[in-house]
Amino acid sequence: MLAVATCALLLTGCAQPDPVVTSRATSTVKPLFASDADALAAATKAYAAYLKMSDLIAQEGGANPERLAPLVTPKWLKSQTTSFHEMAKSGNRQMGETTFEVDRLQQLDDQGTKGTQVVIYVCADLSKTKLLDSSGKDVTPPGVQTVVPFEETLQTENGHGAALLISEETVWTGKNFC
C-alpha cells in the first residue's frame, strides 16, 4: 500500500508543477485577498512599481536608492542600498529598461490584518539592458542571461496598510521556468 502511495506521489510530483501553497486567515480575520488571482494581480502591480524605480536608480548609477522606501520593506531597502552604493562606487550604470512577465503565484500566506505574504515567480528580461562604466564602455558581466528567473517575496508591513512591499528578491537557480 505504501509502495503504491509512493509511486503515486512520485508520478504526481513529476507530472505537474508545484501547487500553490495557500494559507488562509481564520474565520476571525478577514483575508486581504479574495482569491489567488487577486493576490497575484496585486503582487504583479507592486513588483512592476518596484522594478521601474529600481531600473531608474540603476540607470542613474545607484543614486538615491532611498527612493525605493515606499515600495520595499526596511530590511530589503537596506540590502538594496548596499548594492546600489556598490554600483555608485564602481561608477557603473545601467542602460535600458528591464521588462518582465510573472510566471505564476508560488505562495500565498494570507492572514488578513495579521499580515500577508505573497511569493511569485518572475521572468525578468534583461536583453535590453547593459551595464556601462563611466566612459560608456559595456562592462556587462559575462554570462549574464537575457531572461532570468527570479523569486520575488512581497509582504504587508505595519504602517503601510494593505500595500504589498518587496521583501526579498533572488535569482532562482532551480530549473529555469522562463
Binding site: 528591464t98 528578491e169 530549473k175
Partner: peptide, 20 residues
C-alpha cells in the same frame, strides 16, 4: 525537492552588476 531550490541571495541589480 530541496536540491537546487535555494541559492545565495542575488537581486536583479546585483545580478546585472556582477555583485552576486
Amino acid at each position: 525537492s530541496a536540491a537546487g531550490v535555494d541559492a545565495p541571495n542575488c537581486s536583479r541589480v546585483e545580478y546585472l552588476s556582477g555583485q552576486c
